[in-house]
Structure formats: C-alpha cells, structure tokens
C-alpha cells in the first residue's frame, strides 16, 4: 500500500467519509474509488454491496482477484426528543455499536441527569441539526410527538442522505404530518422515506420495547436490500 493511499484512508475516516480501496491480489496495485462515483466502475456491483453492508470482500473479475476494502464511519442515531423512549434507546444503541445524539429544546427534558454521557443539545432542531450534519450513516428518529419540534427536524432529514428516518405517532398523527409535509412542498416519494408509525410491529408497549422495535427497524434498513432479502 502506498503511503498516500494510507493517508487518504485515514483522512476519510477523520472526516466521517466512506472510503473504498481496491487491491489487486496478483501484484498489490491499488486504487481508491470515490463512493459517489462508483456506477461507472468495472466492479460497480461488488463495490455497491460492500458500501451498503460495510463488509470488505475478495472478488473475482475475469481471471483476476481483487480485495475490496470498505471503511465506513460508525453509525449515528440522531434522536429528536429527550423522552422516556430515548432513555431506553441509548444503552441499547451502544450495545449495537452506534453513537447517539439527543436534541430537544425543552430544557426540562434535555437534562444531563436523564442522559448521562450522551451528547445532548437543548436547542431547536433547525438551529443545531445543520451544524451536526446528517450523512448516509446517520439515522434520524423523531420522538417528541410535537410538530413544532419534530417537523423542522423532518424537513432537514428529508433533504439529507440519511439511511433511516422514523417518526413516532399513530397512523392518524402521521396522516396529519403527511398533509403538513405536502403543504410544505415535499413529494410523495420523499414523504414515503419516513417510517411511521415508527418501529417494527412487535406489539411494543413499554418505552424499552418501543426502543427495541426502532433499533430493529434501523438494523433492517441497514442490512436488508430494498426487496427485503439479505444484502
């Protein structure tokens, strides 16, 4: 591996950018592939799979063998709402290896006593989220139930590459949310990205069970292909 390649991998990681490295097993020659421009690459299908699953793999193309090394940033869950469900969600998300950030402008909810050792922002979503950034390795989970707080976050999330957007609320609540989003100019395709009611249908009742159903849905969004088969 060339020192420049190694430096580029390290720089990508520091900047929370994904990186793809293709190494020829026969002679050790290598190339970095821009994840945003892999469609035209001869190994496009393999590269896309590696990027989606985060799994490195040895692949064959003609007579040659190549190792695709994928480096993805840790997944991040941006939780809007410092509520009871979020308190249950934090330790579970950590077990899964995900980083969690909590945003809630209501200072009675967003307290360090309720959320020890978690990055906690007692600010309005539209003020802080652009600064925090939402990339394709960020899941956005809306839990306040309050359109004043959830909607501004949703607007930003729908314009981002986020791999998962979920919003708490009944079907009725979501129908009203859809009306507001349509009035704000969002397309049906864009609105369809929202998982609502949030979480897998496991009959969850307690905050911890709801957190589990949300994390299950996030895992499915990460690991399954759009047709539901294993990636």
């Amino acid at each position: 591996m060339k020192l420049e390649t190694l430096a580029a991998l390290n720089a990508a990681r520091r900047a929370r950018r994904a990186a793809l490295l293709v190494t020829s097993i026969a002679d050790g020659t290598e190339r970095l592939v821009d994840p945003a421009a892999l469609a035209t690459d001869p190994l496009a299908a393999h590269l896309d799979l590696a990027l989606r699953t985060g799994k490195s793999a040895l692949v064959e193309e003609g007579d040659a063998q190549y190792f695709i090394s994928v480096q993805t940033p840790p997944l991040r869950i941006l939780c809007v709402g410092a509520v009871h469900i979020s308190q249950a969600l934090v330790p579970m998300a950590r077990q899964l290896g995900h980083d969690v950030i909590i945003v809630d402008p209501r200072t009675a909810f967003a307290t360090p006593e309720r959320f020890p050792d978690v990055p906690l922002y007692a600010e309005w979503p539209d003020a802080i989220i652009p600064e925090l950034g939402i990339d394709r390795y960020t899941a956005v989970v809306l839990l306040t139930h309050d359109p004043k707080i959830d909607d501004p976050a949703l607007h930003i999330a729908l314009r981002s590459d986020s791999f998962y957007i979920g919003a708490l609320g009944s079907r009725k609540t979501h129908a009203k949310r859809v009306e507001r989003l349509e009035a704000a100019g969002f397309s049906a395709e864009s609105i369809a990205r929202i998982h609502a009611p949030i979480g897998l249908n496991i009959g969850a009742v307690s905050p911890a069970e709801i957190a589990l159903s949300i994390l299950g849905e996030i895992t499915a969004s990460l690991r399954l292909k759009p047709d539901g088969s294993r990636a």
Binding site: M1, L3, L6, L9, N10, S56, Q71
Partner: peptide, 29 residues
C-alpha cells in the same frame, strides 16, 4: 472496520512517517 482496526491504520501511517519500515496484513478470505 470499526474503531479498533481504524486506529491500526492511523498507527501504520505514523510509523511510516517516522521512518520505520511497515507492512500491513489483511484478512481477505
């Protein structure tokens, strides 16, 4: 790759820049 493996690549770069000979071994299969 997660934190642990990533720290390893950061160390590889530091070692090389400090003038040490460095090899990287990767499990490919």
């Amino acid at each position: 790759m997660r934190a642990n493996d990533e720290d390893i690549l950061a160390s590889a770069e530091e070692w090389r820049r400090a003038g040490r000979d460095v090899a990287i071994a990767t499990v490919v299969e």
